[in-house]
Design a protein around this nucleic acid. Structure first.
Length: 190
DNA sequence: CAGTAGATGCTCT
DNA sequence: GAGCATCTACTGT
């Protein structure tokens, strides 16, 4: 198992990176509570030219500033007042690309994950944490972690796993993005 | 099962 | 003041 270096996220093709992230492992280590999961669903947000992106048209605000950071930075923000959505910034500094992590299959710390999700009893194998809000909740990620580099408490790992088949579809919940809403930027492990 | 309502708070106009 | 890169609980079959 090897940790992906920050330079891995500095690639210029955010769609390619979103696809390559399928099957990788995301791990968090907060307060000695280790949890990890295999990434099963991602979406690419392609910066200033992508109407679905917060940084469309080069918008820079207090919230989106993090998207302009160097690749390998965590971008976490609050949606619908409740849900903390976890993204990985890609590309070089000042190019606001990001990949949203929408689903994981829990690996380590299942006990801890069940506690965080308030699922006391069984583990219905497979889709324990699908949906971007639940991914953050399961791993204990919140908006407090926006702007940090993926090198200590939050890290991405590569083991020998190779996805057999990846499904590609349009992104979810972005109808407002008009002509960009049907771009095939969503990747799922099947 | 499917379908819908309501929660909830920050960001940008 | 509107609108979200959503989830849960509750309804009714």
């Amino acid at each position: 198992m090897t940790k992906l270096p920050l330079s891995w996220f500095e690639g210029t093709n955010v769609v390619e990176i979103a696809r390559l992230l399928i099957g990788k492992i995301i791990r968090t280590d907060f307060d000695g509570k280790l949890t990890s999961g295999r990434i099963s669903e991602t979406e690419a947000y392609a910066g200033v030219s992508d109407k679905a992106s917060h940084a469309f048209g080069g918008r820079r605000t207090a919230r989106t500033e993090t998207m302009y950071a160097n690749g390998g930075t965590a971008y976490v923000y609050l949606c619908y007042g409740i849900h903390h959505l976890f993204n990985i910034v890609t590309n070089v500094k000042d190019v606001p690309h990001a990949v949203l992590i929408r689903g994981i299959l829990p690996l380590e710390g299942e006990e801890q994950i069940r506690q965080r999700l308030n699922k006391p009893n069984p583990i219905p194998s497979g889709k324990l944490a699908t949906g971007p809000g639940l991914v953050s909740k399961a791993l204990g990620i919140s908006t407090l972690h926006t702007g940090i580099l993926l090198e200590n408490t939050i890290t991405i790992w590569e083991d020998g796993f190779h996805p057999e088949r990846i499904e590609i579809t349009p992104r979810i919940g972005i109808d407002y993005a008009k002509e960009d809403k049907d771009l095939p930027y969503r990747f799922l492990l099947v």
